[in-house]
Design a protein around this nucleic acid. Structure first.
Lengths: 228, 228
DNA sequence: AACTCAAGAATATGATCAAATTATCCCGTG
DNA sequence: CACGGGATAATTTGATCATATTCTTGAGTT
């Protein structure tokens, strides 16, 4: 099985070393997804070469990919920064997430194995512990891991790629919202998804996913409204 | 170090200066969209530096962006090539195109002005002439121009970005299909879209767009089936 | 058939050039 | 005399190029 784009987390037995620009890309991508880079914050090439101990060319290529992903924006002049969401952007994201991620959920429901469902349950349990502990960073990581793992089973690389793009768009803002509101206001809708997976009911799973997406985006809307 | 006192030359004046990597990106993007680069064809950095008369670094950055766009694929080793579609990919593209582009059509219907509708009619007339003349290159360009111009009026940058990505995926294959089947098998569904725009009926426009998308993708399916 | 070596292409580094933002200073005005 | 605005200089940063290094690949040999 070849990794098409993301996911370098392979076993060290392969012996192949990852290229420098790939590691830089993954590192920056994680920092943006987990909100370590705040929206509106400017990113400089030379600053990244020092903080990541990498050369200039790998950093440049990683930034180009992230701009194409929508995770960074080109500020007219030659400056790049993390974008901040507007209310109109959120409307688009809600529609796109519902259509894309619900379809991924339907497809995954038809293909997922009991062992894979058990793995999803493990991730969801870790997510519950993160919520109870109020660990925002762990909550974001486990929530992303749950959705990503589910979509991997859909066997739909193009739709999965689109979903990854959408997560990169609202990831930084989600981090800001969690920093303001904490994790207690995030009830876990994944239990309904897991139940639908066990029943192998695609439409039920898609409906649960739609509620999960709607709820998550509603949190972002309220958080940004209270922030601005 | 030149110590030129009192030398104020603020008129080197070669006009505006677009960055080289941006120019290379747009050029390559057009070549892929219009099918000048065939699916499966290998793309080398050094070949592009000569054919485009550009440096190595701009070419590298442009290729990174196009890989992130899905317009190019990384062949595992260090080779890059134009991807070829599989039947499973087409299923995903059909779903994504219908949901994304129909929503863009709905939004555009609510915002488009009569002058903009007239511009769309002008593009569609050029498309009709291309079909009558059997001009494949012009047909592809005008068809892309029609959809792009319509989506620009939707005022939805994120959804438009997703749609652009999808077009980059099936653009090369569409060129191959047209080369095999010609343009006579492409009846023009844009007339229904334009009529719905004039009526300012979003659902009617979305329905017409869905038929246009379904018809176009069906052509790709049949063309690829006859080719493989 | 397997191994070795050579050629070519991609990756990565550093240096150099150009542009923009920032800071500073001078001049004008209230 | 103090304050503000505008222009200029300086620093910082991005863009590009030339070059060295590494990896893949293919041919040739044992």
């Amino acid at each position: 099985m070849k990794s098409t784009k993301n996911a370098i987390q392979t076993e060290p037995d392969t012996g192949t070393k990852p290229p420098a620009h790939e590691t830089v890309y993954q590192t920056l991508r994680g920092q943006i997804l987990f909100g370590e880079l705040a929206p509106g914050q400017a990113v400089t090439i030379q600053g990244l070469t020092e903080s990541l101990n990498a050369g200039m060319t790998p950093v440049r290529e990683a930034i180009r990919r992230l701009i194409s992903d929508g995770a960074l924006v080109f500020q007219g002049n030659r400056r790049v920064s993390v974008p901040l969401l507007r209310s109109g952007d959120i409307d688009e994201l809600v529609y796109a997430r519902k259509t894309i991620e619900c379809e991924l959920t339907r497809r995954a429901t038809l293909r997922v194995t009991p062992a894979q469902i058990a793995e999803l349950e493990r991730i969801d349990n870790a997510l519950d512990r993160a919520i109870s502990a109020g660990d925002v960073a762990s909550y974001l990581a486990q929530n992303y891991a749950f959705h990503t793992a589910l979509y991997q089973h859909a066997d739909a690389p193009i739709l999965t790629d689109l979903a990854d793009r959408l997560w990169l768009r609202f990831g930084p803002s989600l981090r800001v919202v969690c920093g303001r509101l904490g994790t207690q206001s995030f009830p876990d809708r994944h239990k309904d998804i897991l139940e639908a997976l066990r029943k192998a009911d695609p439409e039920l799973a898609a409906l649960a996913m739609e509620r999960d997406v709607a709820q998550g985006m509603e949190q972002v809307i309220q958080g940004l409204a209270s922030g601005n």
